[in-house]
């Protein structure tokens, strides 16, 4: 009641009062709209933020007999000391690095070529390149396993053409990289295409008009302007290819054990959560370093374009 003087219950913080006042106050429509996001905010909090904090928490702690939790860096140290770790890391970096370069070498010319086409044809080719993504990734990898196996169509064709003995491609760098390039190609083509197709044609005409050759124009105008697209393509290929479980499983013949497989093993087979969490944290850190670098280049470009 207004007018009756009642002391607020002691110990209540002013913040709480403010929140209470906010809840009681009639809301404008705008404020009501913001409430619609509450389920999503909860999802973000419980299923995205808290789990990420949990990874960090597990990574820097170790379980103890007395249910006590000890802070430790041992999980990270163990990772670097583990036998065979160097092999895993090297294989991951090598395979994902080669995959990224090969993907880029295939994707860039493709994107460049189709930018010359009519708009409808451009859209068609982009659709054709990206449509296989709709098919389950495991099925597409299995298809390559079938094609590359000793009894598969590729060996049959080679034998028929050159009289070659069947080669077991599976378990080689060739097979693993081929599979990864196949899976990740659309992720490289699409950002590069989007970027190239947005470059103002007048810039290229201006360069030619100023006496530059096509080659010079490409290296001095087109390529630098398409760098943000290339970088976002690289981001979308590099880490996923280093962490994929599927390609090594089907095309590696058990000879390839990458970061993803290591995490899988620690979590699902050995139950070493803390250790697995530490590896995941390292991955996230690498991701953010890459993103940070990409943003830097991107910003540099944006500044150039906008100002």
């Amino acid at each position: 009641m207004i007018g009756t003087v009642k002391k607020a219950p002691g110990g209540r913080s002013p913040l709480l009062k403010q929140i209470k006042a906010y809840i009681k106050r009639p809301k404008t429509a705008l404020e009501r709209f913001k409430l619609l996001g509450i389920p999503y905010y909860l999802i973000l909090l419980v299923l995205v933020i808290i789990p990420m904090i949990l990874i960090l928490f597990y990574a820097i702690t170790t379980p103890n007999k007395d249910d006590a939790i000890l802070l430790t860096l041992n999980n990270f140290i163990a990772f670097f000391q583990e036998e065979g770790f160097v092999g895993v890391l090297w294989d991951s970096i090598r395979i994902s690095g080669i995959t990224t370069i090969v993907t880029l070498l295939i994707a860039y010319p493709l994107a460049y070529i189709i930018c010359d086409y009519k708009l409808k044809k451009q859209a068609l080719i982009i659709l054709l390149v990206s449509a296989p993504m709709w098919v389950n990734m495991l099925l597409r990898t299995i298809a390559w396993k079938q094609i590359l196996s000793t009894a598969g169509p590729l060996n049959a064709a080679l034998g028929w053409l050159f009289g070659m003995e069947p080669i077991n491609f599976l378990g080689t760098d060739f097979a693993v990289v081929l599979g990864m390039v196949y899976i990740f190609l659309p992720f490289m083509v699409i950002p590069i295409y989007n970027n190239l197709s947005k470059i103002d044609n007048r810039l290229i005409e201006a360069s030619l008009d100023l006496g530059a050759s096509r080659k010079y124009t490409f290296f001095k105008v087109t390529l630098p302007l398409s760098l943000p697209g290339v970088l976002s393509g690289v981001t979308m290929v590099l880490l996923p290819s280093a962490t994929t479980l599927v390609v090594p499983r089907f095309l590696g013949e058990g000879r390839y054990f990458l970061i993803g497989n290591l995490i899988e093993q620690k979590f699902l087979k050995s139950g070493l959560w803390n250790y697995g969490a530490a590896i995941s944290i390292i991955l996230v850190v690498v991701l953010f370093i890459i993103l940070f670098l990409t943003k830097k280049v991107d910003r540099f470009h944006k500044d150039e374009e906008d100002d």
Binding site: L47, P51, I55, Y58, T235, I263, G276, S280, V284, L287
Partner: peptide, 15 residues
């Protein structure tokens, strides 16, 4: 969306 899938997977499993 940007996290490697496996990290999202691990984080949810831990949760």
């Amino acid at each position: 969306m940007i996290n490697p899938e496996i990290v999202t997977a691990v984080s949810l499993l831990l949760l």
